[in-house]
Simulated scan of single mutants.
Amino acid sequence: MTSKEMADLTEKRHDSVKRTIDTLAEKGVISYPQVVDGEKSANGVVEKLYRIGKRDSYIIVAQLSPEFTARLVDRWQELEADAADPMKALNDPAKLRHVLLGYTEKVLALESRVDALTPKAEALDRLETASDGSFCLNDAAKALQVPPRKFTARLQQMGWIYRRPMGSTWLAYQDRLKMGVMEHKVVTGEKSDGTEWVSTQARVTAKGMARLALLIGGEQVDSCTQPKAGKQAAATGG
């Protein structure tokens, strides 16, 4: 309820009501009210109103004119009834304007948020769909601007990759392979003695890169913990 409505209910001057509100607020009896714009006068001056809550309005009216407290109670009941039935606003231009302004502000806020998130979403979409290939761990770290060692430690912490006992290569957990965020690639080469070596390489898919861009892209990962022994044992056990 506004201070203007309270002045009308108690048949007091609006400036007098505002002074009473200021005095009570300074004494800590009520909360400091919110200041809102009222109607514009003929000479173009916008009157400043106080917006008062239910509890404080009872205190203010009791201070101004105890005999009119019943009017205040009736008015609050009307306001609460209107709030319970939004269709009543359609018959009141002032209330309808207030409701529409409220929705307009919400829409503008949502549009602003969408505008801020759209470039990021488009970038992630391009990352996920531009290529059907995959990235080795070093290349993935560079693309996400995370130091390679910290990147692998973070993946290990999150349960994406692991090493077998005495193993030197990283492998992807089975659930990450099923999710399509990691894959294994068999790499071969020739040793100095002419024999062939075979290695399984864990690689991050384009889908995985999009996921990691949201999870750890650009974050500080200075303190990465190792996965628990139980999980490591379970992983190495197949």
Rank of each mutant, 00 (worst) to 15 (best):
residue 61 V to W: 02
residue 87 M to R: 15
residue 39 E to V: 05
residue 71 R to F: 09
residue 120 K to E: 04
residue 204 V to P: 04
residue 148 P to E: 11
residue 56 D to A: 05
residue 106 K to P: 02
residue 126 R to G: 15
residue 45 V to P: 00
residue 74 D to E: 14
residue 102 G to F: 07
residue 126 R to I: 14
residue 173 Y to F: 11
residue 193 D to R: 12
residue 211 R to I: 10
residue 115 D to A: 15
residue 10 T to F: 11
residue 72 L to Y: 07
residue 122 E to N: 03
residue 150 K to S: 00
residue 77 Q to L: 13
residue 139 D to Q: 03
residue 9 L to A: 01
residue 39 E to T: 11
residue 36 V to G: 07
residue 126 R to M: 15
residue 200 T to H: 01
residue 171 L to T: 06
residue 8 D to H: 07
residue 48 K to W: 06
residue 129 T to M: 09
residue 55 R to E: 00
residue 22 D to L: 01
residue 209 M to F: 07
residue 42 A to Y: 10
residue 92 D to W: 05
residue 122 E to D: 08
residue 158 M to I: 11
residue 100 L to D: 02
residue 3 S to P: 06
residue 112 S to I: 03
residue 41 S to D: 09
residue 222 D to R: 03
residue 143 A to C: 07
residue 110 L to P: 00
residue 32 Y to M: 12
residue 214 L to N: 11
residue 45 V to E: 03
residue 47 E to A: 13
residue 229 A to N: 07
residue 229 A to Y: 15
residue 108 L to P: 01
residue 76 W to N: 05
residue 56 D to C: 00
residue 63 Q to A: 10
residue 198 V to W: 14
residue 6 M to F: 05
residue 130 A to F: 13
residue 164 R to Y: 00
residue 226 Q to S: 12
residue 143 A to E: 10
residue 87 M to Y: 07
residue 109 A to C: 05
residue 150 K to Y: 01
residue 155 L to K: 09
residue 97 R to M: 12
residue 221 V to H: 13
residue 91 N to Q: 15
residue 44 G to E: 02
residue 133 G to K: 08
residue 189 G to C: 14
residue 187 V to D: 07
residue 183 E to N: 12
residue 112 S to H: 13
residue 111 E to I: 02
residue 120 K to T: 05
residue 13 R to F: 11
residue 38 G to P: 04
residue 2 T to M: 12
residue 105 E to K: 14
residue 117 L to F: 07
residue 163 R to H: 11
residue 234 A to N: 12
residue 133 G to D: 03
residue 208 G to Q: 05
residue 218 G to I: 00
residue 182 M to H: 14
residue 23 T to Q: 12
residue 234 A to L: 12
residue 94 A to E: 04
residue 173 Y to V: 03
residue 198 V to Y: 14
residue 30 I to D: 02
residue 14 H to D: 08
residue 155 L to A: 10
residue 105 E to T: 10
residue 105 E to I: 08
residue 100 L to N: 06
residue 9 L to F: 01
residue 159 G to Q: 08
residue 59 I to L: 13
residue 86 P to K: 00
residue 234 A to E: 09
residue 141 A to T: 01
residue 132 D to K: 14
residue 219 E to M: 08
residue 27 K to M: 09
residue 146 V to W: 06
residue 166 M to F: 07
residue 158 M to G: 09
residue 152 T to S: 12
residue 136 C to A: 01
residue 16 S to H: 11
residue 20 T to D: 10
residue 181 V to M: 06
residue 65 S to R: 14
residue 193 D to M: 12
residue 21 I to A: 09
residue 159 G to L: 08
residue 44 G to C: 00
residue 141 A to I: 04
residue 92 D to K: 06
residue 98 H to A: 03
residue 130 A to P: 01
residue 70 A to H: 13
residue 5 E to Y: 00
residue 103 Y to K: 14
residue 32 Y to P: 06
residue 13 R to S: 10
residue 49 L to M: 11
residue 79 L to I: 12
residue 65 S to N: 13
residue 57 S to E: 04
residue 218 G to P: 04
residue 21 I to Q: 04
residue 235 A to Y: 06
